[in-house]
């Protein structure tokens, strides 16, 4: 992409474009960047292969990769109980010091219990219903006096109990159809929620080990957006389209690349800033 842009550029190229040509990132650094991603985000098999294929030395630091991977898998599976236990094994203080993360995990557990109730046989339903309600009362309710957010989060999760069972059991439907069947509560059963919580758990564990809490690639993407906004604010001449081309897509098919000439600013400042807010109210209309 860059090479195309450079060669077809007008004679008077902008400072940015000229600078772009002087940037030379050693291939070895890109390899290290990828290795950092595989380790931080927890892809042990790929990391081991990459060490061989790119002939990189992997310093066997105490990165807790195995533990982090199994915790993530547990969250994805919906086994929040063992995820929370494993986190406590690594660092008993971790969840005590990060209430909103603890709450987010417990709420996921509640959602799983509710889901289990709908998935289970009809005759066990009352018992499972009781389990879910008791769990909410004992584990989540104590949080609600602390913040309105916790309160509404819990209320929304509990509202899943009154979603018709057809919505839960619609296996044949596509992902999007299923989520829309939940209406304003759709975000609660969207896998993105699990991904986000799992990511925050991963970051919290890494932080507790004194490591950087995300992959450097993530950091680069953030810096890229931040710097572009700053540069556009300052009126620095930039290409209108600074999208990222994945997959060498031919010019006419662009289904995969996120560059539709769109340069809108990051829209939702608050979600990143407020730890309580971020797991919640993805769809404000829920209230």
């Amino acid at each position: 992409m860059a090479s195309l842009a450079a060669s077809s550029a007008s004679p008077s190229r902008s400072l940015f474009e000229r600078t772009m040509e002087t940037i030379n990132i050693p291939k070895q650094d890109v390899n290290l960047l990828v290795m950092n991603f595989l380790i931080q985000e927890g892809y042990p098999a790929a990391a081991a292969r990459f060490a061989e294929e790119a002939s990189l030395e992997v310093k066997d630091e105490n990165d807790l990769m195995t533990e982090r991977v199994s915790i993530r898998d547990a969250i994805f599976r919906g086994d929040l109980q063992s995820a929370i236990e494993d986190i406590n094994d690594i660092d008993p203080q971790l969840l005590d010091g990060n209430k909103s993360l603890h709450f987010a995990l417990l709420r996921l557990q509640l959602i799983e219990l509710i889901k289990k109730m709908f998935d289970g046989p009809e005759n066990e339903k009352p018992q499972l219903f009781g389990t879910a309600v008791t769990f909410a009362q004992q584990n989540l309710a104590p949080y609600t006096p602390q913040s309105e957010k916790y309160k509404s989060d819990l209320e929304r999760a509990m509202a899943l109990l009154i979603i018709p069972k057809e919505a839960w059991q619609s296996k044949s439907q596509t992902h999007n159809e299923q989520i829309s069947a939940f209406g304003p509560l759709g975000d609660l059963i969207d896998p993105s929620l699990k991904i986000e919580v799992a990511r925050d758990v991963n970051a919290a564990i890494l932080r507790s080990q004194g490591r950087s809490d995300h992959s450097t690639i993530h950091r680069i993407l953030q810096t890229r957006v931040w710097a572009e906004d700053l540069a556009r604010d300052k009126g620095i001449d930039l290409p209108a389209d600074m999208g990222i081309d994945l997959w060498d897509a031919p010019a006419d098919s662009q289904s995969q690349n996120g560059n539709n000439g769109d340069i809108q600013m990051a829209e939702d400042e608050s979600t990143g800033a407020d730890p309580v807010h971020r797991y919640t109210n993805l769809h404000e209309s829920a209230r």
Partner: peptide
């Protein structure tokens, strides 16, 4: 920087991960 959302770089993907 750490508060910056990267959404606009990946509009076609469900999330950054």
């Amino acid at each position: 920087i750490s508060k910056t959302r990267t959404d606009r770089l990946h509009q076609d993907q469900p999330n950054e991960t």
